[in-house]
Design a protein around this nucleic acid. Structure first.
Lengths: 374, 374
DNA sequence: CGGCTTGCCGAAACCGGTTTCGTAGATTAA
DNA sequence: TTAATCTACGAAACCGGTTTCGGCAAGCCG
């Protein structure tokens, strides 16, 4: 820049000539302050004046300049979201729905959505700090919560509002302390999955769990266990494999379960990503999914619906989740107590072709597998 | 709000107690204005003072409050991106990379990314207008450009800077008038695809084009034609099908081409989405992709790499694209002429299993198809 | 040595809002 | 009727920056 520079670059500036609060005041023959207080529903302004002001504002197309307000109020009316590049997956094709839900909600409330990305968890901290210091956001939505979530701890220390997608602190003394969240009831879903399989006649049902650092891992496992208990089935620890992270981990897990002396005739997976591994494992043993082996999983990732047969899974409505998360965060920033800002939703079963009536007993299955493996 | 309300809600506010420019001025025993000009490299400030100020700013951890600057400068240093929900696909699983590229670039330049969504093209206009009126963004990135792109026209009329991902105005007199863009050279890619197939010994090569409203459709078709010409192959209009939009359109197109008296032994597709339809069409005729029929397409969508065999396609680096787009937009907002802000990149061939040496002639293929169809 | 630049900075206005404070006039209470 | 209280608004300070303007002091020139 510099003085002599002025006018050189024909700098492109966005939409000049807005109608300001001063224009309004002028037109109404009121003072700026009165107009401002009228618009903000202060109660030392008469109803008549409020009406006049609101009417004129509408007529003249007045839109407050939000960052001008922000410098005084400290609120920029913007939701922060940091995409983490280090996590596997990251919503896949549904990221768009998720973002649309958030931004739609934000837009409905007069807010906006600011997106950043981070390559690591250290990078998350730097990015979050920067966004807060520059007041680009009023708070954050934190997806994929961990049992001990450093992101949440950081924001809490910095006294920055946040809303979690998922809960935190499973099994610790301080569950959800001071957190507001939106979560899908994974426990109910997995219990229902077990229940469904039991109705199909399965009595040995395996479980493949997710990495222990994710809070949902424990909740989904609890759902599996509750499902067994409700069906009066005893719980065999051999049927449970945990800390399964990737596609190929999922394949290994299925193989291991199927090679048991008494293999499960059905397996409940905690995530779609890992459940897809079961396709290859089943094929390896010459088993047809949905007939010889039933699979139900959780997430509703798109890939499952392109598979042959399509994956039976509990789908999470990410658009709805985004919408709710954003409105919770706005209320949080506006001062509501975190304890009152918690919502639980249900996942919806998407019937695919990977589950069905048990046609083989565990022992029959074992013999078939034995033959193939030999 | 209201006067009596103050203090009631224990309103959560983000990070108070920042160091302001006044603090800096105080500490340095300079005036606010001088400090500001020093930081902004005005040249009526001595080098010595600039150094002192920069040093102190660093030491005290000063970060300008961007929306405070914005109210004077008119620049909020934010990039706008509107996700359109009405378009099929929308980058699928690569949306995250795309967003990461944009936000990374923005962040490197001290900017940020504001995301909104629109359900229709009318909604796009409303959303864009609102974002501009409230000065939430300085300009927009417009992906998936059309030949006649109303979004671009709108922004141009409103005098709002934009950068296109793809070009506009194919075949009209006013190609790219006043537009800055980043594009992948689809013409080169498709010409290369044809060239590759020719080297494999194919001499009847079909083409499946995308809907005519997309600017890239014409460019990719030109690439196909150029590839033919370079190989000295004559162009048979029967081998070209255009306006193919969806998966099942793609399947129909393949079927139609294969049922010709002299069917193509290879087909070049304009998009992965439609190319996936060729799998089913080929299976329907009992043809093995990569042996009996070769397919090459364009996009690099993830699904192709999960197919059996994997899809040979030209992959677009969306992270890089996002990165470049964002920096072009920033330069555009800062006043550079649109004509100087145009970049072309190359798509990269991902060798899959759907293409290979021609083992059948067109006529042999025709006989096989005829047998199967009968 | 005086006049004229030039370099460098302070003072103050400004951007578009919000919020505090004071007060005229109407209303109520004494 | 007068004093006290409300009601409803204006004036002005303020938020954290940017930008304009004016002027002092040093340097240059003849």
């Amino acid at each position: 820049m510099g003085r002599e520079n002025s006018g050189i670059g024909q700098v492109a500036r966005i939409g000049l000539g807005r109608v300001t609060i001063a224009d309004l005041a002028m037109a109404l023959d009121l003072s700026k302050g009165t107009v401002s207080r009228a618009l903000n529903e202060y109660d030392d302004i008469s109803e008549a004046t409020k009406m006049r002001v609101a009417e004129a504002a509408r007529r003249m197309g007045y839109r407050p300049l939000e960052h001008a307000q922000a410098i005084r109020t400290g609120r920029i009316k913007s939701i922060g979201l940091i995409l983490q590049m280090d996590e596997h997956d990251g919503y896949g094709p549904f990221l768009r729905d998720y973002l649309a839900g958030i931004s739609q909600s934000a837009s409905d409330l007069g807010w906006s959505l600011t997106v950043a990305s981070a390559k690591s968890s250290a990078d998350f901290e730097r990015t979050a700090r920067r966004m807060v210091e520059q007041r680009r956001v009023d708070g954050f939505i934190l997806p994929r919560t961990l049992v001990n979530d450093t992101r949440f701890n950081l924001l809490q220390r910095m006294d920055v509002p946040s809303v979690l997608f998922g809960r935190v602190g499973y099994g610790t003394g301080t569950v959800d302390a001071g957190a507001s969240w939106y979560d899908i009831d994974g426990e109910a879903a997995l219990a229902e999955a077990v229940n469904r399989l039991v109705k199909f006649g399965h009595c040995r049902i395996g479980f493949v769990g997710a990495p222990a650092e994710y809070n949902y891992s424990h909740i989904r496992r609890d759902g599996y266990l509750r499902g067994l208990a409700e069906a009066g089935l005893e719980h065999d620890p051999d049927l449970m494999i945990s800390d399964v992270r990737t596609f190929s981990d999922g394949e290994r897990a299925a193989r291991k379960l199927l090679l048991l002396a008494e293999p499960p005739t059905a397996i409940v997976y905690s995530t779609d990503e890992t459940a897809l591994g079961a396709y290859d494992a089943a094929a390896g043993f010459g088993l047809k999914l949905g007939r010889d082996l039933s699979i139900i999983s959780y997430d509703g990732a798109a890939r499952g619906s392109y598979m042959q047969p399509t994956l039976t899974t509990f789908r999470v409505n990410l658009s709805e989740a985004g919408y709710r998360l954003a409105s919770l965060l706005v209320r949080r920033v506006e001062g509501e107590a975190p304890e009152s800002l918690r919502e639980m939703a249900k996942a919806q079963l998407v019937r695919g072709g990977t589950d069905g009536p048990a046609v083989l007993t565990s022992l029959q299955l074992a013999t078939r597998i034995c033959r193939t493996a030999a």
